[in-house]
Nucleic acid binder design. Structure first.
Lengths: 217, 217
DNA sequence: TTAAAAACCTAACTTATATTAGGTTATTAG
DNA sequence: CTAATAACCTAATATAAGTTAGGTTTTTAA
């Protein structure tokens, strides 16, 4: 990979900085302001960075800079969340209570009192929630229309998308093949909480077959 | 939070879908194509979504839609990476070998053979690497200019930014207060690997003070 | 059933963003 | 020292993206 000049280095770092700060790729002009130069200079610099393979972009598209070789690695902040049991995503099976483990969750998704449940069944696969995944749930007694919730229907816990249309309440699976659970006036529905995040089953096998070699450069 | 109409719901879902697929917020026109309608219709829909508090945007800015209430939660895929020891980010202190634990890392950052090291010292704080953090390292004997690397200088392991200018090699701290380590011709420098990611120290205290209440809705 | 709101359209228009042209001034490598 | 490249500029231009105006049709709620 080809060397970067000073100015190119500064530019690449500015892209990373702004991207982090704004949560989106900066525009050419935003970079120009940040660096105290004019837009065409930035544009030229971007072409060089692209030639050298550090970034990729889509011609004429706004905010389309993709960083291929970040100068500074990203950071993840994980928090442990207790796993309180299983929850059926297909046929409702089991209930909650008693901690059976922990999952790690990026801390920025957590809000309020959270816990996790291991998913059984395949009724939410279109929402990318699969058997063995963990749903991170914010404990709350009320939910809104179209929230994905964990709810008790009678004695069984389930994950579904909540649909409230006036008086008519349904728990809808996210799976073409399955039918909604319609909640009648006399059915007992308890909202346990709202699903904030999904963690896929953890693969604990070591990535490292051999110990790190030490080779002089 | 106010109810969404059908069309608004479809729009919000399309925003989420495109955002995931493209890695950036879609434009009004891209949404129009996706939904098979014209741009002004989308624009109108966006205003409604904003009024109802589901999204936020910056007037006239391209790709500035921020989702405040996602319809479908994000997913994290974590993998366990073995922690092989400590590494000084200030004064080089200790070496590697022998697994002392594991850290969880989002799987998309991993490439090749990876392991983790716990960081000591504060020489890389400007790169957001703090004492107690874990650096995720890709094992490789060669690195490029401006990579953040783990390297052995004599018998000590350290994390620094590698600077190669022709024959002149330096290990530069990312901390205004500290000086670079200059590598002479006879100094022994072994590159252990490149830092791909940083994980902050894990907070294991439970988030849940009380067990989930069950309150009927 | 009827009025209001939502959802859509076409046709501009404005602003933002990317890009080109053509030049000057540093910097770098031989 | 000199030629080449990089880094910058001003001035325009082209295209993308967002927005407005004014209308029709569909849906929703009273």
């Amino acid at each position: 990979m080809e060397q970067l000049t000073n100015a190119q280095n500064t530019l690449l770092q500015a892209i990373e900085r702004l991207k982090r700060a704004m949560g989106m790729s900066p525009t050419v002009q935003e970079l120009a302001v940040e660096l105290g130069v004019k837009a065409p200079s930035v544009f030229e610099g971007l072409k060089r960075l692209e030639d050298k393979g550090y970034i990729r972009r889509q011609a004429r598209k706004a905010r389309s800079i993709e960083i291929l070789h970040a100068q500074t690695p990203d950071k993840t902040n994980l928090m442990a969340v207790p796993v309180l049991g299983m929850v059926a995503a297909g046929q409702p099976i089991l209930a909650l209570e008693n901690q059976i483990g922990q999952v790690m969750v990026p801390d920025n998704v957590l809000r309020g009192k959270c816990f996790a449940l291991k998913v059984q069944g395949d009724s939410m696969i279109d929402a990318d929630i699969f058997e063995g995944d963990y749903v991170v749930v914010r404990q709350q007694p009320i939910a809104e229309n179209s929230d994905i919730v964990v709810a008790m229907v009678g004695e069984e816990a389930t994950v579904k998308r909540l649909s409230i249309e006036g008086e008519h309440i349904e728990l809808r699976p996210e799976n073409q093949k399955l039918k909604p659970i319609i909640i009648g006036q006399q059915d007992e529905l308890k909202i346990i909480g709202k699903v904030l995040h999904v963690c896929s089953g953890v693969d604990t096998e070591a990535l490292l077959d051999e110990p790190p070699r030490r080779i002089t450069t």
